[in-house]
Design a protein around this nucleic acid. Structure first.
Length: 228
DNA sequence: GCGACAG
DNA sequence: ATCTTGTCGC
C-alpha cells in the first residue's frame, strides 16, 4: 500500500517533539470509526538485545486479518535497527521506519490499523497510532498493555466493562476489560475513528485472549523474523 | 522537588 | 522491549 514519505528525521528529542507538534493538526478526530472493518491490520515490533538505545536490531511485523472471521489474510515483515533511543513520549520514532517499510510491502489496504501503544492518550496528544494514522491516512487505534498518561478508576471485572482514561481534564481513552477477571488494556483513538468504534473493534478482536488477535499475530511474526 | 514513564 | 525460575491453576 501507499504510505506518505517520511518527514525529515529528528536528531534530538526536541526535534522529535517539534515533528509531533507539526503533524498533530493533520489528525482527524471527528470522523466516526469503521463500523465493521473488512480487514484489520495489527502491528508490532520485536528487539534483539538491549532495547534502550539506537541501532538495536529489530523486526517490524504487520498482519492483516479478516475483521469478521479473524482469518489471516496477509503478512509482512521488515528487519532493521532502532531509529531513535527510547524516550517516553517519543516512542514512535524508534520503530516508525521499520513499520512503514512493512506497511509499504502490503498488498492489502487495511480498513483499520491496530497499534501497540497509544494514540491521543499521549503527553502531546500524538502517540504512535496517531503518527501511523497520519502517514497512512488510515483509521488507526492504539492498544497498550500498561498505563502511561491519564487517571482512571478500575473498570468492572467482566469482559466489556470499561472506565474513562482522563488526562488534563479530557477523556483521552478508555481502560477496557477484554477478558473476565483479567488485567484491562488501554484503548485510545489514533486517527479517523471514535472511541466507541475503537473499543468495539478491540472486543471483536479478543474472543479468547487479553490482547487483540492482530497484536498477538504480529508479535509472533516479528519474534520469529528476529530469530530467523 | 520527587516520582512516573507506551515499547 | 528483553533478560529468566519457579509456581499456581485449568
Amino acid at each position: 500500500m501507499e504510505v506518505r514519505d517520511l518527514h525529515p528525521w529528528p536528531a534530538t528529542p526536541a526535534e522529535a517533539e517539534a515533528i509531533q507538534d507539526a503533524l498533530r493538526p493533520m489528525l482527524d478526530l471527528d470522523a466516526p470509526g469503521p463500523t465493521s472493518p473488512r480487514t484489520v491490520a495489527g502491528l508490532d515490533v520485536s528487539y534483539a538485545g538491549d532495547g534502550g538505545g539506537t541501532g538495536t536490531r529489530l523486526a517490524a511485523a504487520v498482519v492483516v486479518l479478516d475483521g469478521t472471521t479473524l482469518e489471516v489474510l496477509e503478512e509482512s515483515v521488515a528487519v532493521g535497527t532502532a531509529a531513535f533511543p527510547y524516550v517516553p513520549g517519543l516512542f514512535a520514532f524508534r520503530e516508525l521506519p521499520a513499520l512503514i517499510e512493512a506497511l509499504r510491502a502490503l498488498r492489502t489496504v487495511p480498513d483499520l490499523l491496530v497499534c501497540d501503544g497509544y494514540g491521543v492518550a499521549h503527553p502531546r496528544r500524538f502517540g504512535l497510532a496517531c503518527h501511523l494514522g497520519v502517514l497512512t491516512g488510515l483509521p488507526a487505534i492504539g492498544v497498550a498493555k500498561t498505563g502511561f498518561v491519564g487517571a482512571y478508576e478500575p473498570p468492572g471485572g467482566r469482559r466489556g466493562d470499561a472506565s474513562p482514561l482522563v488526562d488534563g481534564g479530557e477523556v483521552v481513552g478508555r481502560v477496557l476489560r477484554t477478558r473476565d477477571g483479567v488485567k484491562p488494556v488501554f484503548v485510545s483513538v489514533g486517527h479517523r475513528t471514535d472511541l466507541d468504534a475503537a473499543c468495539r473493534a478491540v472486543l471483536a478482536l479478543t474472543p479468547a485472549y487479553r490482547l487483540p488477535e492482530t497484536t498477538r499475530r504480529a508479535d509472533r511474526l516479528s519474534r520469529d523474523a528476529l530469530t530467523a
